[in-house]
Design a protein around this nucleic acid. Structure first.
Lengths: 244, 244
DNA sequence: CCTGCCGACTGCTTCATGTCAGTCATGCAT
DNA sequence: ATGCATGACTGACATGAAGCAGTCGGCAGG
């Protein structure tokens, strides 16, 4: 067996269950056709149906909902190793849109292949269901954040969560990570105005906690940041890769 | 075949797929033991695991998360016919707590029975998965509401959504519905303070739109309320029982 | 009968965020 | 060069919502 094609996904699932060589191979065969999408051009529009599912190989995507008044709410970001549109395929409900934030590469996953893999190896099925349920838990956590945390804590928490997710797939560590999001993305995700996001980022920077600049997030004082944000990575994984 | 035991659930699923007599019978056999829980006493605590799933027969429940600072965020309310803890059983993750709002009756659903039913009738499985995905869509919609709607619209939207859900199981109509929630429940669900909920409810009442009082919600001008809230029931069901 | 609690309700003050209206630097197309 | 995006950043001002500090009525318990 060679190195798996989709390192991020394999790595993510492996932290949850140890997968055998056969299972890893199966995971590999799951994604055949690789497709490319350009930044800023919607992959799936709200209300559209009959879409394929993907595993994100490289790049970032956001899933969002548009409001009648023109504002948008970003529900979640997808990073390499994340599934994209899994629910909409299994349950044919696609109630939000997906937009690549940078140019991306995504491996198409055929529904039948997925179901077959499920039937063949329960362990792999478990792992994938775990990933799906983690995504849901993240949405819930996101809801809590918007409802009950003020802007500073919300942003701090968000940056830590992202870091934790990225660390899990080898794209970040306790020092920081690359992050192509604009302050508008943060605003739309966190229910704030871009202006206020800017102010809060400055506060965090001046407090010597974290810097978000030029596509890079750098942690200056992780411990204090974690304490400020009340960050508990338990809902993301049982290890907590960002915090040892 | 007699009248199904759990009328609300049957009614809800039937609006999505027409179920055969055999499927209805199977649905009936799914819930055997009925259990009772008292208002205010947690059924499931945060972090607990190995719990059973239930179908709510009567009464209301809320699922919520507690913050380290003591505030809580209600993620969702369950009304008769809703599943309770389905995810935590299937995926063993129970990351929030459940609290009965009034005394409730809930039918225990055994995991094996559920899986067997799934295997036997794909149509029933589809219906149940639809219900689960609808719950998820509601959480997302909830997220959008808290992130991008102001208090008036948020509350109006919430009351309409609840009405729509209740109408689906025969517990409400275009006139209104019974609702045991306190203003504190609304506040915790909508990310507001109870005081502000009170003020906004007054506004809505004085504008002649809707009254929330003494455990009863009464719509005075449904059309204007729907317009104010930008309410689109499409994500709840394909018919939209509240709006004809 | 009092006492205490809870939920609904209100006025006043404070503060967190949003809105408006810009500047500045960068990159890209012409 | 010029023009025109876009993203980061800022100050002044407006406002929605929170916090505080109550009142009031209903209801359960001693």
């Amino acid at each position: 067996m060679n190195i798996p094609v989709n390192l991020p996904l394999t790595r993510k699932l492996s932290t949850f269950v140890a997968l055998s060589k056969a299972e890893l191979a199966l995971l590999d065969h799951l994604h055949q056709r690789n497709r490319f999408f350009s930044a800023g051009r919607d992959m799936v529009h709200q209300g559209q149906s009959g879409q394929a599912a993907y595993v994100l190989m490289s790049g970032w995507v956001c899933s969002y909902k548009l409001q009648p008044d023109g504002t948008r709410q970003i529900v979640d970001f997808q990073i390499p190793g994340d599934f994209l549109g899994l629910r909409s395929v299994l349950l044919r409900t696609s109630d939000h849109s997906f937009e690549p934030i940078v140019d991306i590469e995504a491996a198409e996953v055929l529904t039948e292949d997925l179901l077959e893999a499920f039937a063949q190896t329960p362990r792999l099925a478990t792992a994938i269901l775990w990933a799906a349920s983690r995504d849901e838990a993240m949405v819930v956590e996101h809801l809590v954040g918007i409802g009950r945390r003020d802007a500073v804590v919300r942003i701090a928490h968000f940056l830590l969560e992202l870091g934790s997710r990225l660390a899990l797939v080898g794209l970040g560590d306790t020092k920081g990570y690359d992050c192509p999001l604009t302050q508008y993305h943060l605003a739309d995700a966190l229910g704030l105005s871009a202006v206020h996001v800017n102010r809060v980022l400055r506060q965090l920077r001046e407090a010597g906690l974290v810097t978000f600049r030029e596509g890079h997030v750098r942690f200056h004082d992780l411990d204090r940041l974690v304490k400020l944000a009340d960050f508990d990575p338990a809902y993301l994984d049982h290890a907590g890769p960002l915090l040892k």
